[in-house]
Structures are given as structure tokens and as C-alpha cells.
Design a protein around this nucleic acid. Structure first.
Lengths: 197, 197
DNA sequence: TACATTTGCCTAACAGTGTTAAACGATTTA
DNA sequence: TAAATCGTTTAACACTGTTAGGCAAATGTA
């Protein structure tokens, strides 16, 4: 009964086709453009058969997420293997992480819940917090006569740490110890302030 | 014709009611639970009248985003006003920012595009990158015999900066100068590595 | 007061979504 | 050959955002 094998192989293939089609659609039309019927169209089937491979749409996303983490882990490993000293390894790994996010943006969005806000056209209100922060930063740095770009950079440094920390906490729903949060937050803020004084 | 005024006031009121109802629904059922018909139900109207106040659903979200930034700016301002020295102001402002994110989580999610990933049950694959990083961090810190929590903390510090930086870049779609990104990234990575050696 | 116009609001509908149940033809099994 | 199973589709349900049409009350005009 070698035909059993062939059928199993075909099943595995269409399973992969579904995942591939889904990711292709997302790359072309974004996450909002993804629908079961569109996936079915690509693999030249009708929508209901997808449910014989995945229990629902979310299951497809979860599998893609899993594949994403696997791919990331693999790239991190090869980055690590290029160096001997752990300091160099760590730097290479984070650089790889950075690159991964931008060569697989859609995947990264799925894995870490980064949504493109509808309000991309920076509603003018968005400027107010920005100006408040940069104003104070400029005040602290006034002795060294910093350029606009330097101030912007310092602002983004602050923003990155704190927004990043907030994001993990929201996504992981307070899986992280409160003390760790407080420690990182305090370290980051005082550290960056010191570095700009 | 004072009735004109009353009608205008009523219009403004239902406009606010729509925004309020929308935000209430989101707080109760999350962003996926928000629909035009549910909003209409709350304000005791039918869905189409909402379109006399907002051109579409996205316009409602945009207005909420705007309100969010306004509220944030106000809170930042009062935090700033409590101190004289700019260093203290900046610290107070970022702490306020932090608090804002967690007392207005849904709003923050909308403003900065933080999605709760479906894969909240940390698909085991998610562990692989985590273990890779913490492994190397532990190696660097091995002389000081660090606890699990300390290593976790260092990992999250890295993650925060880099994920935060990635998130801004994805959301703002490369509005930020490449040089600034490179600078922050390099500063952060080498800085944190130095701090754990 | 009588007619015309505007306003406020609703019902119905369209096209799309995720998902399920029923059916139907082909293939495999007994 | 008859029965059972499999792969696939059609049809439907309950939603979604959004638009067009209509009805009835309020308003403006003669």
C-alpha cells in the first residue's frame, strides 16, 4: 500500500500550500487582506477543505508564528556560531534579530503583535508628547549645543526601551515579575539621563 | 432660534456617546469585539446613523487615538510641572508614560499598535530564541554567579530596546533616519553588554 | 391653515467575513 | 456487485462594514 504514503505526502503538501498561500497573501495585501476564501483560491480549492487541515484561521496563524520562531532561532544559532567570545556572539545575535524583523516584517508583526496603526498619518495630536519630551531633553543637553537629530535620537532611545518594555508586558499579560519591570525601567531612565547630562 | 443651539449640542453629545460607547465596548470585549452595530445598540440607535457623525469605522478609531494623545500630553505636562530640574522632569514624565500605558491599555494599544498575539500560550517554539539569548548572557556573567532573575532581567532589557526600536520603525514606516537607528542600536547593544561584563 | 421641504431615523440590502452542515460523485472496501 | 468511505463542493448561518431607499415627523413657506 504505497499509495497511502503518496496520499500522506499530498496531504502534507497541501498543508504547506495553505501556509504558503496565507503568507503570500499577507505579504501582498497585509494582514487585513487575509481570508480563508482567498487562501482556498490560491491552492485551487474551496474554503471548507482548509478546515480539514486547520481547525480555524487562528490555527493557521499560530502555525506561522511557530515557523517564524523556528526560523529566528535557526538564524540566531548560525550568528552565534560565527564567533567565539560570548560578547561578540551576543552582539551578532541581536543584529541578526534586528535584520530578521525587517526581512520578515509581516512574520515579525505576527510573532510580536506589532500592528500598523490606522493613524499612520500622524494625527497632529501625536506631536504634543513628542515635543514635550524633546523639549526637556534639549534643556538637559543645552550645554553641549545638540543638533535636532541628536535630540531625536535620545528621544527614540528612551521611547524604545520603555515602549518595548510596555509591549512585552501587554503581550505576555504580566507574566513578568513586577520587580524586574521596575528594575529595568529605573535602570534605563536614570542610565539614559546620565548619558545625556 | 435657540433650538438650533440645543440641536447642535445634542449632535455633539451623540458624537461623544459614539466614542464613549466604542471605548466601553473595547474595554469589555477587546478590539475584536468592536462593531458598528454594537456601538449603535449602546447609544440606542441603528448602525447607519453613526455614518452621519463619522465617515467610517476607522475615523472613530482615529478620533480615539487623537483623544488618547491629548490625554497623554496633558498627563505628561502635569508630571513635568511638579519638578524644577529637567532631569527630574524627564524621569517623572517617563514614569507617567509608563503608568498611562497600563491604566489605559486599550487606548495605548490603539495609539502604538500593540496587538495581543493570538499565540499567547507561548508556543514552545518561542522558548528557543529566549534560551539562546539567556544562555549567552549567562556565559558573559558567569563570574558574578547571577540568578535566573538577573539573567531574565538583562534579556528583557535587550529585548525592550531592540523590539521598541523595531516597533517604531514598523509603525512609522521608515520615517526615522537610518543613521539614528544604527546609532541607537549600536549604543544600546554595546552599552548593555558592557554593563553585564 | 395647507402645501412643500427638509430632517431624523430605520429597514433592507450588498458584498464580504469565518465557519458548519448537507450532499454528491468517485474511490475503496467487503 | 453492494456498501462504506473519502474528497470536495454547494448552501447556508451569523456575523462584519457600508450604502440606498423610504417613511414619518418636524420645519419652512404661501
Amino acid at each position: 500500500m504505497a499509495s497511502k504514503d503518496r496520499i500522506l505526502r499530498q496531504k502534507e503538501e497541501t498543508r504547506n500550500n495553505i501556509l504558503g498561500a496565507a503568507y503570500d497573501i499577507v505579504k501582498e495585501e497585509g494582514w487585513n487582506g487575509l481570508s480563508m476564501r482567498k487562501i482556498a483560491d490560491r491552492i485551487e480549492y474551496t474554503a471548507p477543505i482548509i478546515y480539514e487541515y486547520f481547525s480555524n484561521k487562528e490555527a493557521i496563524l499560530e502555525e506561522l508564528t511557530g515557523k517564524g520562531f523556528l526560523k529566528l532561532a535557526k538564524e540566531l544559532q548560525t550568528a552565534k556560531d560565527k564567533f567565539e567570545k560570548p560578547e561578540d556572539q551576543l552582539e551578532a545575535m541581536w543584529m541578526t534579530y534586528w535584520d530578521f524583523a525587517f526581512t520578515n516584517t509581516e512574520l515579525y508583526q505576527l510573532m510580536f503583535g506589532v500592528q500598523m496603526t490606522c493613524c499612520a498619518q500622524r494625527c497632529s495630536a501625536q506631536e504634543a508628547p513628542y515635543k514635550l519630551f524633546t523639549g526637556v531633553i534639549a534643556e538637559i543637553m543645552k550645554d553641549s549645543n545638540p543638533s535636532e537629530d541628536i535630540i531625536k535620537q535620545k528621544y527614540f532611545t528612551f521611547f524604545s526601551v520603555i515602549h518595548g518594555l510596555i509591549a512585552i508586558n501587554i503581550i505576555n499579560k504580566s507574566d513578568i515579575l513586577e520587580t524586574i519591570n521596575a528594575q529595568i525601567l529605573k535602570d534605563a531612565i536614570t542610565g539614559i539621563i546620565k548619558s545625556i547630562q
